[in-house]
């Protein structure tokens, strides 16, 4: 599974997103609120085996910046 596919799966589980695009953000995806954001950050850390500081976490509010962090 590519990083993109894995991320798409996570967004599908979290918000029911079918097709993941870079322009999706906390303002446009339904259900992506502050609570869901924390749950998302915890899962990203676990799934991609990375650590995300609280400072970084509040910046990762769109798909493009998450992908940039993951290096894709």
């Amino acid at each position: 599974m590519t990083t993109h596919e894995k991320l798409e799966q996570i967004f599908h589980d979290a918000f029911g997103v079918e097709k993941l695009t870079d322009d999706m953000s906390i303002d446009t995806v339904e259900g992506w609120d502050s609570m869901a954001h924390v749950a998302l950050i915890m899962t990203l850390q676990k799934e991609f085996n990375i650590t995300i500081s609280p400072q970084k976490a509040i910046e990762l509010t769109d798909v493009a910046s998450i992908k940039q962090l993951l290096g894709t």
């Binding site: 589980d13 979290a14 924390v38 899962t43």
Partner: peptide, 8 residues
Amino acid sequence: STWLAYRK
């Protein structure tokens, strides 16, 4: 066992 999975 993640919050994300329980939310779903």
